[in-house]
Amino acid sequence: MRYLLLTLLLAFGAAPRAEQWRVVGDEQFAPYSFVPIGSERPQGLDVELVEAILAAARVDYRLRLYPWPRVKLMLERGDATMAFQFAGTPERRAQYRLVGPIRSGATVFMTTHKTAIQDWQQLGDLAPYVLGQVRGYAYEAAFDAADLGRDTSAQNPRQLVSMLLAGRIDIIVGDRTQLLYFVAEQHAEQRVRILPRPLVEMPRYVAFAKDDEAHAERFAEALRRLQQAGTLEPIYRRWGQSPPL
């Protein structure tokens, strides 16, 4: 019997273990991805969307959140199968294979009542001010390339909001919903205002390595099925968002 079992194992091989995807996202991107105090489980709109799509794709996965520079480094080194959430800029498309968008959001300029600017029409209107942005983030191609005074010392959007409220910078740029979330944390809604004209309505994607067509297509196919069935709409509504166009 022992000889027969060994013969069968050699003939057919042991059953292969299912591949586990290593999925990573930004730990400081509330309300889209974050880990609440006292919990170890990632939460947020993007976390729920990604988990629903991976479940539809029948993928075995392990999802963890890290600081944004580490997220990008893990994907670049092959230490992660997939990462989220990336802006759909030409720079990101050149670096990664993007799938989506899974959502979109308005990128806006936020300031305080101490700053004179009321709105902007061209990027040069922002030149007299110090603009705060998160180190390593991509916002919009023309803005990213513009010759403007920038402070890139913030490591995450929460820190960026704190710097604005402390008067260290004049204007900050970021996702509208997210900036307002962090302002509300500090009960500072009456101290800030958002310039009427947004920078861009930015789609957000998941990213794979540039040559990883197999994983990207598996995720993309599951996303298409859920979008066509309207399955993701309750997740968007629960977080006060609308599905991407």
Rank of each mutant, 00 (worst) to 15 (best):
P198S: 02
I194W: 02
T177L: 14
V206G: 00
R176W: 10
F208C: 02
V173N: 01
R197A: 10
I194T: 08
F143E: 06
Q186I: 01
A207E: 05
I194F: 01
D144C: 07
D175K: 00
R193C: 03
L165H: 04
L179C: 03
R176I: 02
V161S: 07
E185S: 00
V192T: 08
A188E: 04
A207V: 06
Q186N: 07
I172F: 06
T152W: 06
V161C: 10
Q155T: 13
G174P: 11
D170V: 08
I171T: 08
T152E: 13
E189G: 15
Q190S: 14
Q159T: 13
R158G: 15
V173R: 00
P196L: 09
L148C: 12
Y205T: 07
R150K: 12
Q155P: 00
F182P: 06
L164M: 02
L148V: 12
D170K: 09
R150A: 03
Q190D: 15
M163T: 03
E140H: 15
R150Q: 07
R176V: 00
A154Q: 03
R150I: 11
I171M: 06
Q155N: 12
F182Y: 15
A146S: 13
G167L: 07
A207S: 08
D151P: 07
A207W: 07
Q186P: 02
T152D: 12
R168H: 07
V161R: 10
A188M: 02
F143R: 11
L199T: 05
V192S: 01
F143N: 08
M202N: 00
E140D: 12
I169A: 00
A141Y: 14
A146T: 10
Q190E: 15
R168A: 04
H187G: 04
V173K: 01
R193Y: 04
Q186S: 13
I194M: 02
L148Q: 12
S162N: 14
L179I: 11
R176A: 14
M202R: 12
A188F: 06
F208R: 06
D147H: 11
D170R: 09
A142Y: 05
G167V: 09
V200P: 01
Q190K: 14
T177V: 15
H187L: 08
Q186T: 12
L148M: 12
V161A: 06
D170Q: 11
D175V: 13
R150V: 09
R150E: 02
N156C: 01
F182C: 03
D144I: 08
A188Y: 09
A142E: 15
L199D: 08
P203V: 09
V192A: 01
R193P: 11
L179Q: 13
E201G: 01
Q159I: 14
D151K: 02
R191Q: 15
F182D: 13
F208G: 02
